Amino acid sequence: MSSGRDYRRLMYTFWGSYLEEPYKEVGIEISKTLMKHWGPVRLLCNSPVPNIISAKTEVERNYVENIETPEELEEIIRNHRLFKDFFMFVASYVNPAVTDAKHWAHLVVTEEYMEMIDYSRLRFYRTKNPELNAARTAALLEVLKDIARLPAVRELWMGDRMDGFLGEPAFLYRPRKLYDRVQVTAETLKTKEEVLSLVKRFEEHVPREWVLGYLRRRLGEEAVEELDEKKIVVKFYDGTITKEKVRGWHIIQAFTKDVDAYLAERGLKLM
């Protein structure tokens, strides 16, 4: 999924396909949540490639450095000339769970999607020490859980290859003919009504306990956790984000097929 790119995603969601709240407002809350875990925003810009080298004056810059408090961050994103009329912002952090070097992570917020990217291609999760890799992955998962608890974040994918899922179980049901379009950013915003309609029908006809039982049988008890009364956590990796236990996409395809079979036995169909 990431071949041909110089980064990996630590988390992402195509929230343009479901999010009803203003994208920038939710992005601000996620940014502030990350500050609780990772401290100051080291760089805030309106582009994945900020103008750092060529800018000679403050006016020429398209970035702000070293934002220390959540209140300051919120004020800048809402009112600074670079961000108030622009839908994208990128907030960059240094992950303190990595102590042997600076590990940068960059939160990208747009209307179509939100993602957190790592330009090191996950090398800080690929050390020669398996216990260290697992500890760093576990620390990342705790951060993602905090983000997934935000009411507006209904689905959150961990890793570049669907290595884990945090969110409402209905978003694990992914018919190809719909979700292939969700993942094309030119189409993402256009799919919202279809996605929300599908989620509603799923929730009406597929019991939560059936979903939990299905996933635990397939993946093991330790791989499935209830995050709150609405959301769950599902791990498709084995100890570390870089080590697959199962292919997330394969499980999702099987889950979608088996949900269809479960409903067919009851004379129902979601799509």
Rank of each mutant, 00 (worst) to 15 (best):
Q253F: 04
E222V: 09
K257M: 07
E68G: 01
P22M: 03
N51F: 07
T13N: 02
T242N: 01
G16D: 09
L156R: 01
P96M: 07
R208E: 15
S2K: 03
N46A: 00
D146K: 03
K192V: 07
R181D: 08
W249R: 11
R201M: 01
V184W: 10
M1R: 11
G213V: 02
K245D: 03
A91H: 10
E168H: 13
L166T: 05
T99D: 12
K190C: 09
E229L: 11
A91I: 06
R174Y: 11
Y12T: 06
G16K: 03
N62Q: 01
K177G: 07
Y18G: 11
V64Q: 00
T69D: 10
Y179H: 09
A134F: 09
R78T: 05
E225Y: 00
G27R: 00
G4W: 08
P130H: 03
W210E: 13
V224G: 07
Q183M: 15
Y93T: 04
F202S: 14
P207N: 15
W249S: 10
L263C: 08
F236T: 01
G159Q: 04
K56V: 05
K190D: 14
E111D: 12
L107A: 04
S17Q: 08
K145L: 06
E187Q: 13
L268G: 08
D180K: 08
N51Q: 10
E60Y: 06
A223C: 04
T33E: 13
L43H: 13
D228S: 13
V143R: 02
E74K: 05
L44C: 05
W210R: 13
A254K: 15
T185M: 09
V90M: 00
A139P: 09
V259W: 01
R176D: 13
I252Q: 09
A139E: 15
L150N: 03
S31K: 00
V98W: 08
A254G: 10
E193Q: 12
